[in-house]
């Protein structure tokens, strides 16, 4: 085991991917708790499709991929938030609208310029080789910013998630914090999708939060547990991907599914055990 690990980390590209991936899975799991509870799970999916469109356009213009994708996804996040707040188009329909539009634009741009090649495949399903050195620096810096902002505004994010009306009524500027959540999510997705792939990145947001909620019942413990689960699953996924030569993104998601099933079983067992003891006490 140790031999495999040391062999694995002797490759510079794996170390790079590993550092970035660890930071991204940490950020996405933290934000995921709030997004899942606000019923915004699909925003991650929609934004990743926007990211795909942006990457295709960046490739066509031969620009640096992240410098196009990050702003595009951030703008899309704000538009989505605005639409679901104000207009008659409901949130889920708005997400479907924007994600399929940008997917179509992305595919059209790709086929007009480079054609469907391995690059496109990498955008869709992710590649561990996709991270260049400058990408890594940018990703690491942004991911650290996301982490710091999340910790600083943790209490506000809880209030806005738990009861937005009350928070607004008592003078919390909920608009700003909703935008903050959207902004952080957008950055996380734009950074993570190169490795995880446009089709799989949203699972990094949704799975850890749902898994943690099977067992834990407090916001703080769910958040912490989701972060730990996410990091462990990412680590295990990358090792599996190295051992069996499977794509990194897919391997991480599969490990996440396993963790979800495990925690569901644990939560079920715990509830059963509890109701049984309660019943016994009632009889006496």
């Amino acid at each position: 085991m140790i031999d495999t690990l040391s062999e694995m980390f002797s490759y510079a590209f794996i170390v790079r991917a590993f550092i970035v991936g660890l930071l991204i899975s940490l950020c996405s799991s933290l934000l995921g708790v709030s997004l899942v509870l606000k019923r915004y799970s699909m925003i991650g999916d929609g934004l990743s499709h926007v990211g795909f469109g942006a990457l295709a356009v960046a490739a066509a213009l031969s620009a640096a991929p992240l410098s196009v994708a990050v702003p595009a996804v951030v703008v899309a996040a704000f538009v989505l938030l605005r639409i679901s707040e104000n207009t008659k188009i409901k949130g889920d329909a708005a997400i479907a609208l924007i994600s399929t539009s940008s997917l179509a634009i992305g595919v059209a741009v790709v086929s007009l310029t480079t054609g469907m090649n391995t690059d496109v495949c990498n955008y869709m399903f992710g590649s561990i080789l996709a991270m260049s050195k400058s990408d890594v620096n940018l990703s690491a810096a942004l991911a650290v910013c996301v982490l710091i902002l999340f910790v600083v505004f943790y209490n506000k994010i809880f209030a806005v998630t738990f009861d937005e009306t009350f928070a607004r009524a008592t003078g919390v500027k909920t608009g700003i914090y909703n935008m903050l959540i959207a902004f952080l999510t957008a950055i996380t997705i734009a950074l993570g999708m190169r490795m995880m792939g446009a089709l799989l990145i949203s699972s990094l947001i949704i799975f850890p939060a749902l898994t943690a909620m099977r067992v834990f019942k407090k916001f703080k413990s769910v958040t912490i547990c989701a972060a730990i689960i996410s990091v462990i699953c990412f680590f295990a996924g990358i090792v599996c991907s190295y051992l069996y030569a499977t794509p990194a993104g897919a391997s991480v998601v599969i490990i996440n599914i396993a963790a979800f099933l495990l925690f569901s079983a644990a939560g079920f067992a715990r509830r059963r055990f509890r109701s049984k003891t309660f019943f016994k006490r009632g009889q006496i």
């Binding site: 209490n155 809880f158 738990f162 928070a167 919390v172 019942k217 407090k218 916001f219 703080k220």
Partner: peptide
């Protein structure tokens, strides 16, 4: 299924007075 303890819910009432203090 909202995971929030009673304490977390109650103390969130103080947030409005905190302004931007974290």
């Amino acid at each position: 299924d909202f995971p929030a303890s009673v304490y977390e819910a109650v103390i969130s009432g103080r947030l409005g007075q905190r302004g931007f203090l974290p």
